[in-house]
Design a protein around this nucleic acid. Structure first.
Length: 951
RNA sequence: GCUGGAGUGGCGGAAUUGGUAUACGCGCUAGUCUUAGGAACUAGUGCCGCAAGGCUUAAGGGUUCGAGUCCCUUCUCCAGCACCA
C-alpha cells in the first residue's frame, strides 16, 4: 500500500515549474496549424517594492483562461514583459545616483522570480523589456513614421508643469489641478512640446468601439474621454464691426431661443472686440482676473458664475435680434470656437442669465414621458392625441390644495380632464371642477402654462399624447353638489398641505405646475414641443434634430460640425529615463529625423539624472551627445533632448510579443497575421481610458500604413478589481501593509494562493485581503491530495447523483471561467469534493475533477496526475467536455408550496403529468395539515420544479 | 451637481427566464484524536422562541399564485464624469 505522503507544496511546486520549462509546455508556436488564442495582461512596471499579492490577481485570472484554452486544443500565446521606463526608477536614480539600467535589471529580476514562483503559464521565451534598445529601436521607428505622416509635430503651448517632479504633464495626468503622481498643484508654463495628432483619429476611435467586445463601463469611459459631439456651427457677425466668428451648438433645436453670446476670457478676439467701447481697460483686466482665478480654482470658480458685459452685440440673423456679448468664466477657448450663443434651454446659460438679468426666450414647452411604470407608453403603438386641462384648486379658507388619489391605479393627481368638442380650455376647467369635485363657487386666478405628456392610459388601454393647459383656481366657499357615483368610485378627494403636494403627485408635469405656482420652478426644458421656428411648430424636439440642422444649413445660417473633447497628445517629457526622440534640430534644414538605419538612438549614460533648472532633460547637459552633424546637410546641429512619455512603449508591446527577437521589423507580417488581434485583454481600471486609447490610436495608425492586419488591437477587454490591505486600504510600502506573495507561497503554496485569490470574491471588484480566510482553500487542497489515497479498485458502483453532479460541474466551471466568475468556479469544485467524500468514486471521475481543477491549481493536480500513472502533463490533456447522454435523472425533487410558502418536498418521476402530481400532493399528510377544510382556489404547477396550492 | 452601479448572516460572498434565499468558504459552538496545539477530523450554526411556530435580502409601498430579482418612493454607499455650449 502506498504510504500516505503528506502534501508538500514546496517540493511539488518547484519540481513542476522546472519540468514545465524543460518540456516547453507553455511555449506558443508561431504559425501552428492549431487555432490560435492570444491572451494578454498589462505588463508590469517593475518597481523597487517588489510584487505584492494584488499584482498576480489578473495574471492568475487570465492564466485560467489560457490554461483552459490550451486544454481545449488552442495554440495559446500568453506572454509577459516589463514596462520599465518611467518616473519611480528615475526618481530613485536621482536620489541614489544609481544607473536606472542597473536598477531596472534588479527590479525585473525580482519580479520575474516572484511571478515564476506562482506557476503562471506565461511563455517566458518571449519576454520583452521596453528599456531594451532592441525594443525601443522600434518605438523610435514608429515615432518616425508619425513624423513622416505629419502626425508628430512641435507646438508651443501652455503645459501643465509639476514644480516638484520638474516635468510637463499631459492633461490626462492632471487630477483636480494636481499632479497625478505626487499631488503637487500644477502650474502653467509655455513650452515647445512634441505632439501626436490623436484628434485626427478621434472619430474612428469613437466609432470603432462598436466593433469590439469591451465591458460597457470601459467603452463608456473611452467615449466620455473622446467626447464626440455633433451639431452646427452658426455664423455670427458683431454689430458695427468687421468681426465675425462661428459658434458651436450641440442642441440646434433651440437655436431660435438664443438671446446672448458669451466669449471666453482668453479669447484672442476679445481685445479687438472691446476696442472703441470706452471700457477696454475695465473689461480686459476683468477678463485677466477671470483667467487667473480659473487657473487657480478650476471648476470651483466656474461654479461661482462670473462675467462682464462687453458693450457689443451680435446681430443674430435667424431670430432677427441683437445678442449682447458677455465675457464669461464658463466659456473655454479649447472647445468649439471659444464663443457660445446661449439660450434659456441650457442650464448654465440659464443660471448666468438669471444672475446678470439677461432676457431669455423659451421656444419649447416641456414634454413628460413616463418611463418604467405601468403607465409608461407602449412601444410601437399609436398615440391618441388629446387636449386637456390640469387644475390646481385652493381651499376656500385654508392653505390647502385639492388632490385626487386613484382607487384603481397608482395615480395621485390634481384634477384633470379632456376638452370636449368646441370647448375652450377655460370652459373645460370650469366644467371639470363641477363634475369631478362638485364645488360650485370658484374663480380662475391664473393660467399657469402648457405642458405635454406621453403615457399609457391604464383604464382605456391606449397610448395617450396629452397637451395640458394648466390653471390655478381658488374656491370661494365650500358649497358642493353631490358628485356622480362613477366619479366617486374612481378616486378619493383629499386636501393637501403645501409641503405634502410634491410628494403626493405622481405626474411630473403637475409637479412642474406646482413649482411654477410656488415660484420655485427653475428647471430648464430639456425635451419639449417646439414653438419656433414656425416650420417646426408642435414637433417633438428630439425627433426633429436632423431636420433642423438641414434647415439651418439650407438657410445659410450655419453648417454641420463635429467636435471632440479629446486634445492632441503631449508627447515629450523633459526627463532622462525614456526613449530619446530621434530627431535633430538643424538651423539650415529644420527638424530632421534620424535615418532609420541609425536606430536605435541609444540613451547615453549621464552622471546626474536631475532635470535642468529651466526644465530641460539632463540629456541637454551632455554636449558630446547633443552636438551632432545634421543627417541632411552635414552642418553642425543639435539633438532633440526630450524623451518620450512612458505611454509610448506600452502602446505597441502586444505586437512585439508575436515576434520578439526580430531585428528587421517590429514584428513580421506573417506572425502578426497569425497572432493578432489580441483575443482577450484584461487590465486595471486605471488604464481603461488612457493606455487603451493611446494603443488603439497607434494600432490604427499602423493599420493605415498596412503594417498590422486589423484596425483594432484588442477584441475583448475586461478589468479586475484591486486587492486591498486587510483594513480595506490600498496596499503601499509607505503604509507598511503590503502582503508579499513570497511569504504566502512559502507557507501555503502557490496553488493555495491562486485558489484563494480566485475564490475571495468577484474578479472585477475591489476586495480586502484576509489572512484568516486563506486557510479554506488550503484545507480544500489537502483534502484533494488525501483523496488520491482513498481510491480503490475501479469497479465500484457510482450513483447517478455523482454522475449528474460531475457533468453539471463540467458545464458550470467552463461557463464560469469564460465569464470570469472564478469564485463560483472554485465553489463548484468544493461542492464536488464534498460529495466525493461521502460516496463511491471511480478513478475516471476523480481524474475529470483534477482536470477541472488544473487551471486553478496547476502543481498539485499535475503531481497527482502523474501519481495516477499518466506520462503526459495534465495541462496538455483534453478539457472535459459536457456530455448530455449521461444525464439520466429518473427522479427529481419538486417543492410543494401552500399559498406561496414552502411546506414540503417530493420526489417524482421526471415529466410526471400535472394531474398525477396534483393528486399525490393533495393526499400528502404534510400538505393536508394546511389544506384541511379549506377551499382550493387554484393550483399552479411549474414543470419539474414546484407546485403551489392557492386557497 | 450629472450619469451609471450596488445595498443579502458575525465576515467574504451564492442564487438561468420571477419559482426551495443565505450555496461555497471564513469565523463561531460542541465533540473526537493527540503530551500539546492558533493542527486535523465529526456535528451544528440567518434571526426570535423551550417548542409548535413565526420573521428575514437597506426602509416603506405596489404588481403576482409566488419577488433578493419587476415597478414606485425614501435612505445609504461606491464608481465614472464634472466650464465641453
Amino acid at each position: 500500500m502506498e504510504c500516505m505522503a503528506k502534501y508538500n507544496h514546496l517540493k511539488i511546486e518547484k519540481k513542476w515549474q522546472k519540468e514545465w520549462v524543460k518540456k516547453k509546455v507553455y511555449q506558443a508556436k508561431d504559425l501552428s496549424k492549431k487555432p490560435k488564442y492570444y491572451a494578454l495582461i498589462e505588463f508590469p512596471y517593475p518597481s523597487g517594492d517588489g510584487l505584492h499579492v494584488g499584482h498576480p490577481r489578473p495574471y492568475i485570472g487570465m492564466d485560467l483562461i489560457s490554461r483552459k484554452k490550451r486544454m481545449e486544443g488552442y495554440n495559446v500565446l500568453y506572454p509577459i514583459g516589463w514596462d520599465a521606463f518611467g518616473l519611480p526608477t528615475e526618481n530613485y536614480a536621482i536620489k541614489t545616483g544609481k544607473d536606472p539600467r542597473v536598477v531596472t535589471k534588479q527590479n525585473s529580476d525580482t519580479f520575474r522570480r516572484q511571478i515564476k514562483s506562482l506557476g503562471i503559464s506565461f511563455d517566458w521565451s518571449r519576454e520583452i523589456n521596453t528599456t531594451d534598445p532592441k525594443y525601443y529601436k522600434w518605438t523610435q521607428w514608429i515615432f518616425l513614421q508619425f513624423l513622416k505622416k505629419g502626425l508628430a509635430y512641435k507646438a508651443k503651448m501652455t503645459i501643465n508643469w509639476c514644480p516638484s517632479c520638474k516635468i510637463g504633464l499631459a492633461n490626462e495626468e492632471v487630477v483636480a489641478g494636481a499632479c497625478e503622481r505626487c499631488g503637487t498643484a500644477v502650474e502653467k508654463r509655455e513650452k515647445e512640446q512634441w505632439m501626436l495628432a490623436i484628434t485626427k483619429y478621434a472619430d474612428r476611435l469613437d466609432k470603432d468601439l462598436d466593433t469590439v467586445d469591451y465591458l460597457p463601463h470601459i467603452k463608456l469611459s473611452q467615449k466620455n474621454w473622446i467626447g464626440r459631439s455633433e451639431g452646427i456651427n452658426l455664423k455670427c457677425r458683431v454689430k458695427d464691426s468687421d468681426i465675425s466668428f462661428e459658434v458651436y451648438d450641440s442642441v440646434p433645436q433651440t437655436f431660435m431661443a438664443q438671446t446672448f453670446t458669451v466669449v471666453a476670457p482668453d479669447h484672442p478676439l476679445l481685445k479687438k472686440l472691446v476696442e472703441g467701447t470706452g471700457r477696454e481697460k475695465e473689461i480686459l483686466s476683468y477678463a485677466e482676473k477671470m483667467i487667473t482665478e480659473r487657473a487657480k480654482l478650476g471648476v470651483e470658480y466656474v461654479k461661482e458664475v462670473d462675467g462682464i458685459f462687453t458693450g457689443r452685440y451680435v446681430w443674430y440673423e435667424p431670430a432677427q435680434r441683437d445678442l449682447p456679448i458677455w465675457v464669461a468664466s464658463y466659456a473655454i477657448m479649447g472647445y468649439g470656437s471659444g464663443v457660445v450663443n446661449c439660450s434659456a434651454h441650457d442650464e448654465r446659460d440659464f443660471i448666468f442669465a438669471k444672475k446678470f438679468n439677461i432676457s431669455l426666450h423659451e421656444v419649447a414647452e416641456p414634454l413628460f414621458i413616463n418611463t418604467g411604470g405601468v403607465d409608461s407608453f407602449q412601444e410601437g403603438q399609436p398615440f391618441s392625441e388629446r387636449e386637456a386641462v390640469s387644475i390646481i384648486i385652493k381651499h376656500w379658507s385654508e392653505d390647502k390644495y385639492l388632490g385626487l388619489k386613484s382607487k384603481n391605479v397608482h395615480w395621485a393627481i390634481f384634477p384633470t380632464g379632456g376638452l370636449e368638442k368646441g370647448e375652450r380650455p377655460e370652459e373645460a376647467a370650469n366644467r371639470e371642477i363641477k363634475e369631478e369635485t362638485g364645488y360650485v363657487n370658484f374663480k380662475l386666478v391664473k393660467k399657469i402654462g402648457r405642458s405635454h405628456a406621453k403615457f399609457y392610459h391604464v383604464q382605456k388601454k391606449e397610448n395617450v399624447f396629452a397637451h395640458f393647459t394648466s390653471f390655478y383656481f381658488e374656491l370661494k366657499n365650500g358649497e358642493q353638489n353631490k358628485i356622480t357615483e362613477e366619479e366617486n368610485q374612481r378616486h378619493s378627494m383629499m386636501w393637501l398641505a403645501p409641503d405634502d403636494v410634491e410628494n403626493f403627485l405622481t405626474q411630473e408635469g403637475q409637479k412642474r405646475d406646482w413649482k411654477i405656482l410656488q415660484g420655485t420652478e427653475e428647471a430648464v426644458v430639456k425635451n419639449g414641443i417646439l414653438a419656433e421656428p414656425a416650420e417646426f411648430k408642435d414637433r417633438e424636439w428630439f425627433e426633429v434634430r436632423e431636420d433642423i440642422i438641414d434647415y439651418i444649413v439650407k438657410k445659410g445660417w450655419g453648417k454641420r460640425k463635429m467636435n471632440f473633447k479629446l486634445r492632441d497628445w503631449v508627447f515629450s517629457r523633459q526627463r532622462y529615463w525614456g526613449e530619446p526622440i530621434p530627431v535633430v534640430h538643424c538651423e539650415n534644414c529644420g527638424i530632421v529625423p534620424l535615418p532609420e538605419k541609425d536606430l536605435p538612438l541609444l540613451l547615453p549614460k549621464v552622471k546626474n539624472y536631475q532635470p535642468t533648472d529651466n526644465g530641460e532633460s539632463p540629456l541637454a547637459k551632455i554636449d558630446k551627445w547633443v552636438n551632432v552633424k545634421c543627417p541632411k546637410c552635414k552642418r553642425l546641429a543639435k539633438r532633440e533632448t526630450d524623451t518620450m512619455p512612458n505611454w509610448a512603449g506600452s502602446s505597441w508591446y502586444y505586437l512585439r510579443y508575436t515576434n520578439p527577437k526580430n531585428n528587421k521589423e517590429f514584428a513580421s507580417q506573417k506572425n502578426l497575421k497569425y497572432w493578432t488581434p489580441v483575443d482577450w485583454y484584461n487590465g486595471g481600471n486605471e488604464h481603461t481610458t488612457l493606455h487603451l486609447l493611446y494603443s488603439r490610436f497607434w494600432h490604427k495608425f499602423l493599420y493605415d500604413l498596412k503594417l498590422v492586419p486589423t484596425s483594432e488591437p484588442y477584441m475583448k477587454r475586461t478589468s479586475h478589481g484591486l486587492i486591498l490591505a486587510e483594513g480595506g486600504e490600498k496596499m503601499s510600502k509607505s503604509k507598511g501593509n503590503v502582503i508579499n506573495p513570497d511569504d504566502i507561497v512559502e507557507r501555503y503554496g502557490a496553488d493555495t494562493l491562486r485558489l484563494y485569490e480566485m475564490f475571495m470574491g468577484p474578479f472585477d471588484q475591489a476586495i480586502a485581503w484576509s489572512e484568516e480566510a486563506i486557510i479554506g482553500p488550503r484545507r480544500f487542497l489537502e483534502r484533494v491530495w488525501k483523496f488520491q489515497f482513498r481510491l480503490k479498485e475501479n469497479k465500484v458502483e457510482v450513483s447517478q447523483f455523482i454522475i449528474n453532479s460531475i457533468n453539471l460541474a463540467r458545464n458550470n466551471i467552463s461557463r464560469d471561467i469564460e465569464s470570469m466568475k472564478f469564485n463560483t468556479a472554485v465553489s463548484q469544485l468544493m461542492i464536488l469534493l464534498n460529495y466525493f467524500e461521502k460516496q463511491n468514486i471511480t478513478i475516471q471521475i476523480y481524474e475529470t475533477f483534477l482536470q477541472l481543477l488544473a487551471p486553478l491549481a496547476p502543481h498539485i493536480t499535475e503531481e497527482i496526475w502523474f501519481n495516477l500513472g499518466h506520462k503526459k502533463s495534465i495541462h496538455l490533456s483534453d478539457w472535459p467536455r459536457w456530455r448530455t447522454d449521461s444525464i439520466q435523472d429518473e427522479e427529481i425533487k419538486i417543492v410543494v408550496q401552500v399559498n406561496g410558502k414552502v411546506r414540503a418536498q417530493m420526489f417524482i418521476p421526471i415529466d410526471t403529468p400535472e394531474e398525477n402530481i396534483k393528486e399525490q400532493v393533495l393526499k400528502d399528510k404534510a400538505i393536508l395539515k394546511y389544506t384541511m377544510g379549506k377551499d382550493i382556489k387554484r393550483v399552479v404547477y411549474v414543470k419539474n420544479r414546484l407546485i403551489n396550492i392557492v386557497m
